[in-house]
Simulated scan of single mutants.
Amino acid sequence: MLKRTIGRLGYESSVVMFGAASLGNVTQEEADTSITYALQHGVNHFDTAASYGDAELRMGPIISRVRNDIFLATKTGQRSKEEAKEEIYRSLERMRVDSVDLLQLHAVGSLDELDRCTEKGGALEAAVEAQAEGIVKEIGITGHGHQAPIVHLEALRRFPFATVLLPLNYYMYGLPEYRESFDALMEEAGKQSAAVRVIKAIAKAPWAEGQNRPHATWYEPFDQQEIIDACVHFVLSIPGVSGFASAGDIHLFPKIVDAVERYGLMSDEEAERILSSISGYTTIFGAPTSIA
């Protein structure tokens, strides 16, 4: 399993993070099987959130036993200090652990959301307090949508977040405004040695109305191995990207791991040929809008 260093944290993480959104609505047996598969294939970075249904509960039985062997991250979507602190403690209890390696302020995709998190009495204060208590080792931020790179750039100016987590795939990076803002974020993150990790690497498009939905993801994902290979090749080939989160469906996870294990066998030209010829490939976040 390919590993990369998580910014200034110095941790050697598998480039694919186990995205535990996939465990939000599965049985304990299914969760155990998926987590065990990840561990057997060298995945040592597990990323979850308080809002991912029963994911933290499903992780508990195995994660608590291998806690010292993995990098464990969770997220709080609360915006006030009091509510965020309660959620942090609840996450630890649900996962049966005493601490997490990374606590992320979740879904901060607009400047209004960032303001709410960073204002006096906001969620950032809870994260800093939890860090002082030793139950949170590092603090990061995540976001969705086309504004995420701009918002996260501003976030890094306000606070030394150790990590950022935001969307990136071939289609989105091909949008001039998104590419420009993503590259600007990468430059600042590099200066601060903040790790940039990405989501939605294999997202194809929003589900069409009335479309059969064979996957648990909230968007239509790619599920053909060759295309997944190309998607993985693309995001891992962007300089400075330390890793990506797997899609929210346990049945897609083995294909994603397979693509990572064969990373380097596909050329940039082949990936470009595959991804540029896909019909119906678009953004899952709707039409891009200005941050102004």
Rank of each mutant, 00 (worst) to 15 (best):
L114G: 02
D115P: 07
L114T: 02
G109W: 11
Q104D: 01
E113G: 10
Y89N: 15
A107C: 11
Q104G: 03
H106F: 04
A107G: 05
L92D: 03
R90W: 11
I88T: 05
R96G: 06
L105Y: 07
E113V: 14
S91L: 03
L114C: 06
R96M: 11
H106V: 00
E87W: 05
D112G: 12
H106T: 01
R94V: 06
R90H: 07
I88C: 07
D98G: 09
K85G: 05
D115E: 10
L114A: 07
D112Q: 12
H106E: 02
S99E: 08
E93A: 13
M95H: 05
S110F: 06
M95W: 12
M95K: 15
Q104Y: 04
E93R: 10
L111R: 05
D115A: 12
G109T: 05
R90S: 14
L114I: 04
E113D: 13
E87M: 11
D115H: 05
L103W: 01
E113H: 08
S91N: 12
Q104N: 06
V97Q: 03
S110N: 07
K85W: 09
M95R: 09
S99P: 05
Q104L: 04
E86C: 13
V108K: 01
Y89E: 15
S110L: 10
S99K: 14
L102G: 00
R94H: 11
A84W: 00
D101T: 02
G109M: 11
A84S: 04
G109A: 09
R96P: 02
L114Y: 00
S99G: 07
E87D: 15
Q104W: 06
H106M: 09
E86T: 12
V97W: 09
R90V: 14
D98C: 02
H106D: 02
L92I: 11
L114M: 08
A84G: 12
M95P: 06
S99L: 13
R90F: 09
